[in-house]
């Protein structure tokens, strides 16, 4: 028996198998979406994308994604800062809390926000008196989007910053830097790629969230319809082509974001001390 053969043999077999799995599980469904979208030509596809209701859905989705991103970045940095730079009681609890949204069903997320801000809530009268519309309006959509994307930035930062330790910050402090200076000049340059990576994941997730948003949105066309909800609406109006066209649009946005992510990862790998172990 040749020494090299055990390595060579599974090589081709495994790759072929991986391609089969990949094609069956991932490519086929995506292909269905793309083929349906262009089944009546590119013009119909384009029209579906520039229709006013689609545009308002795109705007709302971008708004929700961006606001969720900003809030997640601020929160992620703060949380990662305390978790990675200090030892304190209840740290595990904090990390568990941050991870919690990962394991909660989107429908349950919608339900808990409905219970908190809906007619069952103790705040309900207060909200009504002050003309504050939370669920079935944009704030509700923002809140659930933030909820489902909350862990992403924090997790990718915590993983990296814990590995980096506290020496550089301590040195900077001893040299007389204040908190902001330490953050801007020492910490941020070290974590920027992980920050970008977490942001990308949060963006991807925020764009496609369906279940939770669907519970709190109310599906008001032109006001509270996000892209995923708009797709569902088009599908319900017998407009398969338009529904899949918008899906392709969403896929293209996702692809863009994911390529960006790949690019971040490359940068991460270039700096071996910033290796990620999420």
């Amino acid at each position: 028996m040749k020494a090299a053969s055990p390595i060579i043999k599974p090589y081709y077999f495994l790759i072929a198998l991986a391609w089969v799995v990949f094609a069956l599980v991932l490519i086929c469904p995506l292909l269905v979406v793309v083929i349906e979208a262009f089944s009546q030509g590119i013009k119909v596809f384009w029209q579906a994308c520039i229709e006013p209701e689609a545009l308002s859905a795109i705007k709302l989705t971008l708004l929700a994604t961006i606001i969720a991103l900003i809030m997640n970045v601020i929160f992620g940095v703060m949380a990662a800062w305390c978790v990675s730079k200090y030892e304190f009681i209840g740290k595990t609890l904090l990390v568990t809390l941050i991870d919690l949204p990962f394991s909660i069903s989107p429908i349950v997320v919608g339900l808990i926000y409905t219970l908190l801000y809906g007619s069952q809530s103790i705040f309900y009268n207060f909200l009504i008196e002050h003309h504050l519309q939370v669920i079935y309006a944009i704030p509700g959509i923002l809140l659930v989007t933030i909820f489902v994307t909350l862990p992403f930035v924090a997790r990718s930062l915590i993983a990296l910053m814990q590995e980096q330790g506290t020496q550089e910050e301590e040195a900077a402090r001893l040299l007389g830097a204040n908190g902001w200076q330490i953050f801007w000049h020492v910490t941020l340059p070290n974590i920027k790629w992980a920050l970008l990576h977490g942001s990308v994941m949060s963006t991807a997730r925020a764009m496609g969230e369906f279940g939770a948003v669907s519970v709190v949105s109310g599906h008001i066309q032109g006001l509270t319809n996000t892209l995923p909800l708009h797709i569902e609406m088009l599908y319900n109006e017998y407009n398969m082509v338009a529904a899949f066209s918008i899906s392709v649009l969403l896929l293209l946005m996702a692809m863009l974001v994911l390529v960006l992510r790949k690019w971040c990862e490359k940068h991460l790998e270039r700096h071996p001390q910033q290796k990620e172990s999420a």
Binding site: G118, S119, Q120, L127, Y136
Partner: peptide, 8 residues
């Protein structure tokens, strides 16, 4: 239900 829960 949405109206009960505050959809305006």
């Amino acid at each position: 239900r949405a109206v009960i829960d505050g959809m305006p």
